[in-house]
Design a protein around this nucleic acid. Sequence first.
DNA 1: GAGTTTGAAACT
DNA 2: CAGTTTCAAACTC
Length: 447
Amino acid sequence: SPVTSPRTITLSETLSSSSKIAISPLKSPSKPVQTVTVGGPQFKTIFPLSTSSNVQQIQVPGSRFHYVRLVTATTGSSTGQAGSHCTNSSMTAKPMVVNTAQVRMSVPIIPAQTMKQVVPKPLTSSGQLLTTQTQQRLIMPATPLPQIQPNLTNLPPGTVLAPGSGNMGYAVLPAHYVTQLQQSAYVTLASSSGFPNPTGIQTQARLPLNGLSTSDAASRPRKPCNCNKSQCLKLYCDCFANGEFCQNCNCTNCFNNLEHETERAKAIKACLDRNPEAFKPKIGKGKEGESDRRHSKGCNCKRSGCLKNYCECYEAKIMCSSTCKCVGCKNFEESPERKTLMHLADAAEVRVQQQTAAKTKLSSQISDLFTRTTPSITSGGGRMPFTFVTKEVAEATCECLLEQAEQAELIQQPQATAERMILEEFGRCLMRIISSAGKTDCPSINC
DNA sequence: GAGTTTGAAACT
DNA sequence: CAGTTTCAAACTC
């Protein structure tokens, strides 16, 4: 929209009475001059997505979602002058970190007439550009937006909102989708919709290791999937079910990535058609141990007794509840089988910890031994003692010992004395080796 | 590592 | 909605 005249967008389907969002352009990435007004409370432009001038991020405090708006102007006087201050170098800058503890989920918003559903544009090896001629801006609400929050936060990921009187459509994506984009290695988002790229600016986003945001990765390392037939576009695929891209997975023919944006969007829609809550967490958000932490649908186990990881309740370390339809359930508080399992699990965990501690201690001792026995290491020599006991040294030592044995035999010494003589010679050999090791780095030591 | 079991998801 | 099939993870050997 023009710099001087805020553009008004009507969100007729998601907002009630206060449904006007006025967007004024941002002149500089470092100067938050863009303001979005939603029924009084204001979004403040924080800064533009470093990777693209067409993405705005909207934070709704307390919401499980964070929102991204792809802003497109329809005229030549749009804010598309982003290129004037968005250089290639800025595109490769680290994406913004906006209170990441709260950023959860995003709603990318794009021009409805150009896309039906909003997901980041696919990557291409040619490094094409994401999107439109216009600017993308990250915006955050200065105050909570109760009037829209219930609507947006209740939307399942992948939901596509039809445009209202404005020219924008909206989609809700799983949280990981955006955090992936924000927090991992850069990848290039490229347009597949034929938007021109007058500036040559690349839009990049970050995909996290293993498909997790940084914070999540620390607490919940995701296992790579091994899907073969589902293209990772069905809920069989854990990555897809969790709203994550496949990354570092072992899947074949994977479509759960930016390169298959269209198929992925269709798959998300299909899942949501079948079950609008398909992407919502199955386990309640209550703290561990609290009664509200339960499986939303309950399990249907028949043969596992709900005491194996086949059972989603057991896997989530929660008891089965009245919502479960399991047969022969043993996953309840007083179950002796469950208690036994828990004790075994605890014992196993203790063993693992002990083993880890033992390994750590051993490593430490070896390291310490290395340090103490090789004083030359600090003075530049730095070789372990055994490196001095080369094959030649060993052979020479053995010759010395044999010679001593022959001497003892020659003078007809009793066996005990002969053994003693040999041992003494061995001691002298050792002393010579040690002495030589301490004096020189020369690898060849002769007895 | 191959084969089997299991139960959720998908399909009919 | 119930029954069946498909699928990938969990599990066993």
